[in-house]
């Protein structure tokens, strides 16, 4: 069986090191937080100026001054800290953030990322912190469906959408498999409900299938 969105989030969460400083991108990556038990000691960074971000706020906890990068109200657990935007992005750009998890339109076989703009006429470009995150975090995990709705692969030889960052993705998590972006190519780490050989027939890139 291919993975559900919740199972995919749990799979990403499983691979986040204990005690890591992590930024979860807007949208689906946010779900990873639901699978990080407190004893893992993972510290969440939100680029609008907070480390040690808590879960989504409910009821009386909602405070318009306390939101995440998706502008969703969150909570302030013990140990949380606030800082301004230049410090927040220094944490990324300066290589202090261990992992970020981002969504994507496309990832290329060498790890180029396209996730901010479709480039379509009339589309309003909005990059937010995606370019800073892509080149800043020590490891960039992408979480996406492997194919578009019409069946076109999103793991591609070359991105056709405008790029967010060059050679920045380290790993791609999809409902059908987890892929490592390596110097020599894309390695299949595990598959879900499909064999690596079947996967190869549906993708336009050469997959490395055995551990060296």
């Amino acid at each position: 069986m291919s993975l559900s969105k919740a199972e995919l989030a749990a799979t990403v969460a499983r691979d986040i090191p204990h005690g890591a400083y992590v930024n979860l991108g807007i949208g689906q990556p946010t779900m990873v937080a639901d699978h990080l038990a407190p004893d893992r000691g993972v510290v969440l960074h939100t680029e609008n100026g907070m480390l040690g971000m808590g879960r989504a706020a409910v009821g009386d906890e909602i405070d318009p001054d306390l939101i995440n990068a998706g502008k969703v109200p969150v909570t302030q657990p013990p140990g949380a800290v606030y800082f301004h935007h230049a410090d927040s992005f220094a944490m990324m750009r300066g290589g202090h953030l261990d992992v970020c998890v981002l969504g994507a339109f496309q990832v290329s076989a060498r790890g180029d990322l396209a996730n901010w703009h479709t480039g379509e006429p009339g589309a309003i470009p909005a990059v937010g912190g995606a370019m800073d995150l892509a080149i800043g975090a020590k490891q960039v995990f992408v979480m996406m469906t492997l194919f578009t709705r019409d069946g076109t692969p999103k793991l591609v030889p070359e991105c056709t959408y405008p790029l967010t960052g060059l050679r920045c993705v380290s790993r791609v998590y999809t409902e059908l498999g987890v892929f490592e972006i390596e110097e020599g190519g894309v390695r299949v780490r595990e598959t879900f409900g499909i064999t690596p050989a079947e996967l190869q027939t549906r993708l336009d890139i050469e997959l490395l299938q055995d551990r060296p």
Binding site: H84, H85, A86, S88, A90, G128, G129, M131, D132
Partner: peptide, 8 residues
């Protein structure tokens, strides 16, 4: 402008 560049 990328958000970090805007700040920096």
């Amino acid at each position: 402008v990328p958000q970090g560049n805007l700040a920096e």
